[in-house]
Computed example of a mutant assay.
Amino acid sequence: MTVIIDDTTAQNTPPTSGAEPEATASSVRETVRWAARNWGLVLSTAIFVLAVLWALLPGAFTSFDPIAVDNGRKLLPPSGEHWFGTDLLGRDMYARVVYGARASLLGASMAVAVAVIVGSVLGAVAGWFGGFVDTVVMRLIDVVLSVPGFLLAITIVVVYTAKVGQAGLIPAAIAVGLTSAATFARLIRSEVLTVRASNYVEAAITSGATTFTVLRRHVVPNSLAPTVSLIAVQLGIAIIWIASLSFLGLGAQPPNPEWGLLVSDGRQFIATRGWLTLYPALTIIAVVLATNNIARHLTTRSSR
């Protein structure tokens, strides 16, 4: 009896031994080319990720305690042991910059979250109901936008501090968020006006869904996409404003480190020991420029 072996499958199966390495190498080359073309975005992303890691895992980047006082190491210049030098109380400045990222980024993130929530509510209400409600909300937004945002944030914090008796990071973040909400409200309102006329919103209304349900499930979620790049821009602005409020004594309070507070602490020695203000200031500049560059790329990509 003759046994016939069908080797068609084996003949038609292409060899794959070298295909995967070639595909991997091609992917690596494309990634390298993309990184070379967009080196600014890569650098900005790396800086921002580093700042986030400082905020989340500061102990992984320094072994020094940012609060511990060491009278024997006062005002030491930058060295191999103390990369950013030491301050008036002998505390390692690099450790204080690293640990200060938590307060700065946390305050800025809280401010942006408040701005998005409040702005989304105001914009959704104005765009959905229209008429008198829209007029009142938009005039209120116009009044807020007519006042310099940072001046308004200072006013809110000062009033709060006068009543409570002590400033803090959370009140500063809320104040910055409230002053930034108007920008988000205008953007959300324009998106709601577009989404409101869509077929799926009309179908939801016809099916008997309540106004709150339609806004929560359909209108607001579909109106938030354009705010992604604005969130990145506002995050950079919030970092500057939080640092500025701390510099003025209206934000984070000592001994806890915060970038603006570190600049304030070192300003009396700026002529003789400039590292006390230089490194925290450069950190603020680098992170803000990184977030702005990321926001610019997000805006460019979304407009295509």
Rank of each mutant, 00 (worst) to 15 (best):
A281I: 09
G266H: 11
V201S: 01
A153N: 05
L250H: 08
I4H: 14
P58I: 04
G177S: 11
S207E: 08
A23R: 14
G149A: 12
G165D: 07
A153K: 07
N38K: 13
S198M: 08
L248P: 01
S303A: 15
P21V: 09
F132N: 05
L278E: 09
D6C: 09
F247R: 07
V114W: 07
L151G: 08
R37F: 07
F212M: 14
T227K: 02
G130S: 08
L53E: 06
L187P: 01
G208P: 05
Y99P: 00
T24W: 11
T155R: 01
A286G: 06
T194W: 01
L298K: 03
S244F: 03
A225H: 10
R189F: 05
V121P: 00
D142M: 08
I67S: 09
A95T: 02
L193Q: 12
V263A: 11
G100F: 03
R216Y: 04
L122G: 01
M1H: 11
P255A: 13
T227G: 02
N256E: 15
T135Q: 09
N12Y: 04
L261K: 04
F247Y: 15
M1R: 13
I117R: 03
G119Y: 01
A126L: 10
I174E: 03
A68V: 10
V137M: 00
T210V: 03
L250S: 04
R196A: 15
A238I: 08
Y94N: 13
G236Y: 03
P15A: 14
H82R: 05
